[in-house]
Amino acid sequence: MGDTVVKIENLVKKYKELTAVDHLSLEIRKGEVFGLLGPNGSGKTTTISCLLSLLAFDEGTIELFGKTMTPTSYDIKARIGIIPQNVAVFDELNVYENIDCFCGLYITDKAKRRQYVDEAIAFVGLQDFTKFKPKKLSGGLLRRLNIACGIAHKPELIILDEPTVAVDPQSRNKILEGIEELNKNGATVIYTTHYMEEVEQICSKIAIMDHGKKIAEGTSGELKRMIKNTETVTIEMDEPDQALVETLNRLESVYEVKWEAGKLKIYLAGGEHNLLDIMDLLRTSGVRFGQVTSELPTLNDVFLTITGKELRDKD
């Protein structure tokens, strides 16, 4: 248990009639990149706010580094870095001053702080923008500055609350690479997002939340194995006759065949060389077809299977 950085047990947070967090229990171990995945309003940010002792909660306990977290737990706070969802930097200060300003909330030694600020600037790749005011920075650079302000003091636990919202792909990749590097350097990371691809890319463990509840938890593979579907084959072709559909349904791994939007979708559960079997069957049946694609299941499929709805609206 000595490796446990965050332990949340039966956390309940209510806003009048609305239960924002409903008996949530989590355990995050040292060195993990823990993803909190869920649609907007699922309770991710509320959970983080309770974790940081900003929000009062109704039930449950929260421990960080083995100690109960309170608003005056300054020794614990010194080990945490927070990157809020909205960019929280001062327009009147330039890049260097902003990072120094927030780093100074943790580090009192000037020489040490100067070194840390320089390292943070290098880490997020803002060396060429140190004298720039935030308004002169692009959205992606601004996000990087936001991250630098949160990690400059070299925290052991870094909490990133949807850090890639409204960020261009290049900056998003840079941010994700940065998080992986922070983790390699020993930091434990809590990463909240509704982008399943990001979670799959960087998180070693994932909890999926919906309506304040944890609906699933595990590694990406573990989560995907929770659902029946292991592969989806999509074929461009004319609408098949009933005989072909029945033939396909008789294949061992196929559990569902659907005709959707001019494409035939074949859902498979387990099995090997499924694609080859389907292609052979189509050829022998003399069916003309075009593009054939095979997709492995995503966390959205997991979410869809568990909740019956999409994780997020299609972008």
């Binding site: 940081l52 900003l54 300054y74 706070k77 010194a78 927070i82 809020p84 909205n86």
Partner: peptide
Amino acid sequence: ANLSDYGARRSCSSTPKLTT
């Protein structure tokens, strides 16, 4: 913390609120 993101950031820091 309930009034601004700056406040949230400061409230999460190891500097006491009275000092800030």
